Amino acid sequence: MTQRAFVRPDRSAEWRRFSAILVAGLLLFETLSGLAIWLLPFSLGVQFTVIVHTVAGLIFILPYIGYQLRHWLVYRHAPMTHVKLTGYLSLAATAICAISGIVLTYQAAFSTRISYTWDIAHIASTLAVIAFALTHIVALLLRDRRSGASQAPVLAAERSFGLGTIAWTLAGLAIIAAWTLSYEYVQLTNEFPEDYDLQYGEDRPFAPSLATTVTGGAYDGRSLGGSQSCGTAGCHEEIKREWEVSAHRYASMDAAFQAVQATMAEQNGATSTRYCGGCHDPISLFSGTKNIFVENLTSLDGYQEGISCIACHAIQKTDVKGNANYTISQLERYAYEMREDEGATAVFLRDFLIRSYPDHHVESLSHRLFKSPEFCAACHKQFIDAEINNVGWV
């Protein structure tokens, strides 16, 4: 069977083709943004990079299929060389990357978690795309430069191709930058009330409770609440239902606790109720609610949630001494995580980010400490010291 002769196309026109520049620009943006998501630490900018990367990837698929189909039809009869081979390998790697990206997007949008197998496939295929696509293009550029002046129109077209590719990439980066700069954080008030009673000294603002914060200062109560959101994403629905009827959830709302707290405040002053707050009402304790001249010693968030999901999962270290002897941190939250009141779009973006970019969520909320008896002992072990009854006992 006679092989059909290869007719070389106008290479200047091929380099200047809009579809080639668009596909190359999107591919470069997807590569750079993907590496940023993989390698850079958790931040607001990287979170918006995840969203723009996902949208650009979906936009990329159809133009890429159209371009590659035409490219194959034009060059399929060309002799097999290292340039053609790297082109085929680049096509295969990009196909795997696109398929894995579609699967991950679907899982992040409509499932409860992404598959780490597909995630690894996406990362590995990205690295393969870099290796093969870069080799393919660099080989073409070097070949044309070795040809000298006879390739001047082609070299000019390649420069246009490069500038167009960079322009599309910069456009994507500009969208990320604009979104990041325009995003308004939920302003947290990590301050004690002006009349906050520091009866036990400035270095012990939560005493007589042994609980403290990483900063040693107050935390906005909103940063420790929001347990209902743990079930809206579909990830922890069963756990949330169990928490809703648990002793932890009712630790502050419980009528017996409220009665004991009221009696304690009446007899020993409002500051003495902080002794109970570390275990029963941490949201109110760390937001400075348990203070003198306060009619209600339990904040609304603290009353509704008691021991919230965050109140446990934000604990960094404990001591088996008991009496709420633990240190709690204020976790860095995802974009839109505390803005559920802005509607369904904000909730969707929050859940999508947590599922598609889960490392920060896992690392900040899951620790070996939580599976140890020492963790529970911080609250489920009690003693009364002299600061409470002027006698003390263990």
Rank of each mutant, 00 (worst) to 15 (best):
T2C: 07
R4S: 02
R4F: 04
A5M: 11
F6S: 12
F6D: 08
V7R: 14
R17G: 07
G25I: 02
L27K: 00
E30L: 15
E30I: 13
L32T: 13
L32Y: 11
A36M: 06
A36W: 03
W38L: 00
P41N: 02
F42P: 00
V46H: 02
A56I: 14
I61P: 01
L62M: 14
P63W: 08
I65Q: 08
H71I: 00
P79N: 09
I96D: 04
A98L: 13
S100L: 01
S100Y: 11
G101T: 13
V103P: 08
A108P: 03
A109K: 10
F110E: 12
R113Q: 14
Y116A: 06
Y116S: 05
T117K: 14
A121V: 14
H122M: 10
I123S: 02
A124C: 12
T126W: 06
L127E: 05
A128E: 06
I137F: 15
A139L: 10
L141Y: 15
Q151P: 01
V154S: 04
L155D: 00
A156G: 10
T165F: 03
A177Q: 14
A178K: 07
L181H: 10
E184V: 03
V186K: 11
P193S: 10
Q199G: 04
E202F: 07
E202C: 01
D203F: 04
D203G: 04
P205K: 09
P205F: 06
P208G: 07
S209Y: 06
A211D: 05
S223E: 10
Q228T: 07
C230D: 05
H236R: 09
I239T: 02
E242C: 08
E244G: 03
A247E: 04
A247H: 04
R249T: 02
A255G: 03
Q258L: 03
A259M: 08
A262V: 07
N268D: 05
G278S: 05
H280P: 01
H280R: 02
H280L: 02
D281M: 05
S284M: 03
S284T: 05
L285Y: 06
F286Y: 04
G288A: 04
G288Q: 05
I292A: 06
V294R: 04
E295T: 09
L297P: 02
G302L: 04
G302I: 01
Q304G: 02
I307R: 13
I307S: 01
I310R: 05
A311Y: 01
A311D: 01
H313V: 00
I315A: 00
Q316D: 08
T318Y: 01
T318E: 08
T318V: 15
K321L: 09
K321Q: 08
K321P: 01
G322W: 12
Y326I: 08
I328Q: 11
S329G: 08
A335V: 14
A344L: 13
T345R: 11
A346P: 01
R350Y: 13
L353R: 07
R355A: 00
D359T: 14
V362Q: 15
E363A: 14
R368Y: 13
F370D: 14
K371Y: 13
S372F: 11
Q382N: 11
I384T: 09
I384G: 00
N389Q: 12
N389D: 15
N390Q: 13
G392Y: 11
V394I: 13
